[in-house]
């Protein structure tokens, strides 16, 4: 509105009446425009997740039944979540790799909670195009790096679920989670 007033006040025209009239018409149309934008906001916002969807944004997971070397597949925000207890051998394999040589450089420490290095919690969503990698189920192909293997386009993840081979650009995502007890976590 300020710019309109500016034009109104300092315009070259000497005929005051015409200027005042233009100003009112411009103001009226501007108000209609502002109103239209204000209406569009809720129309867009209604497509965001609703309160009931957001309320389900945390998932508790019980770890007590997961043996070393085993993994479970559960869900978090309607997507697969892999929870895996690494064996000492797998931890050693993951630590052996120089992180700086990796496509997405991260150490196992950075991907796990302090002092609970054996608990690897990742999304089961390949970072390439979103397929569910194999390796969480008993007897599934874990790929050549012993972690997860995505059958869609052949991405191989290692025992820290870091991308080692294939088209995927990133390591499997580690969601935000915390330990609520020694054998239970809350994801989200």
């Amino acid at each position: 509105m300020a710019s309109v007033e500016h034009i109104d006040g300092t315009g070259p025209s000497g005929e005051d009446g015409v200027r005042r009239r233009d100003f009112i018409n411009i103001a009226a149309v501007s108000f209609a425009g502002v109103g239209a934008v204000a209406v569009v906001l809720p129309l867009i916002d209604q497509m965001n997740p609703s309160a009931d969807v957001l309320a389900l944004a945390t998932s508790p997971v019980d770890l007590s039944a997961i043996q070393p070397g085993q993994a479970i597949k559960t869900t978090f925000r309607s997507q697969p979540l892999f929870v895996r207890q690494l064996t000492p051998k797998e931890i050693a394999e993951a630590d052996k790799v120089d992180a700086s040589t990796l496509r997405d450089p991260q150490t196992l420490e950075e991907r796990t909670v302090d002092g609970k290095k054996q608990w690897l919690v990742t999304m089961g969503v390949c970072t390439h195009l979103g397929c569910v990698p194999l390796g969480a189920g008993e007897g599934e192909n874990r790929g050549e790096y012993g972690g997860y293997f995505c059958p869609c386009h052949g991405s191989s993840y290692d025992t820290a679920a870091r991308i080692r081979k294939g088209p995927a650009p990133k390591n499997l995502e580690v969601p935000k989670f915390s330990f609520t007890s020694d054998t239970a976590i809350l994801v989200g």
Partner: peptide
């Protein structure tokens, strides 16, 4: 009912 309660601006719509 859920549109009215949980969807953003659902009651308005």
């Amino acid at each position: 009912e859920q549109t009215m309660r949980d969807v953003n601006a659902g009651w308005l719509m």
